[in-house]
Amino acid sequence: MQEFLFVFRRAATNNEPPLSPEQLQSMMKPWQDWIGNIAAQNKLVSAGNRLTSEGRVVKPGNVITNGPYVELKEAIGGYTIVRADSLDEATELSLGCPILNVGGTVEVRTIIPMEITV
């Protein structure tokens, strides 16, 4: 089994009205159900974290810019780590991710293990 990183991206939005608790609740369910599907297969390593939309970008020469990142069309919204036998299987797991329903993307990447078992 190898570990894989899911990176969630969606268009940076920082001028949307804040969501009501009910809206937040109804947004949480598909995420929880999706993570639960992965966890029920014993393939969840870490549910990871979600990121807020504000941030800073630090560049050489102490150049600091505020997010959102004008160069990027899509901002990173969060990440999750799963375990699977192959990149294909990991990709299969990502298919139900709710971010895909709101125009976002999931990038699936193989994590290089720290300890290599021979």
């Binding site: 369910k29 929880q32 159900d33 993570i35 639960g36 966890a39 029920a40 297969q41 014993n42 969840l44």
Partner: peptide
């Protein structure tokens, strides 16, 4: 269902996975 979703994130067990699927 939501409680099982959280439980499985803390600790996987086959019985929790099965019960969670029934709740699903």
């Amino acid at each position: 269902l939501q409680l099982y979703n959280k439980l499985l994130q803390i600790e996987y067990s086959p019985i929790a996975a099965l019960n969670r699927t029934y709740a699903l």
